[in-house]
Amino acid sequence: MSLGSNLDLLTVTFYGTAIALILIGLYAALVKRSLIKILIGLSIVDSGINLLLVSIGYLKGGTAPIFSPAVIDKNPAMVDPVPQALVLTAIVIGFAVTAVALALVIRLYRHHKTVNIDEIKNLKW
């Protein structure tokens, strides 16, 4: 499966989707008052950045960077494996960060009975 000839259109699609996801997520993280909504926004930013990094590494007509028996003799052009390894790491770390942040939200709710950051006034637990 290879992407067709409309490379200009696909450029706009992939980069545009990634940048739009980053901006929507940043907007949610800056404007919303609920802590869970802020974390949802940050996870959307994460998705956008991952899409941006993988689409930078794409090569037109390239195959996946795996020397399976079907392609090893043909010596095909391959996409860049370095951003893929980077994004693999980023996704796993992103999940760990989200889980710890949500645990802190649960802990805050136990003490304040709210997740709205306007109502959590004192800095003490």
Binding site: L51, V54, V87
Partner: peptide
């Protein structure tokens, strides 16, 4: 999208 962009490893993880 990751699968279309020839990144099956990342697609599995995601």
């Amino acid at each position: 999208f990751f699968y279309v962009l020839q990144a099956p490893d990342v697609a599995l993880t995601e």
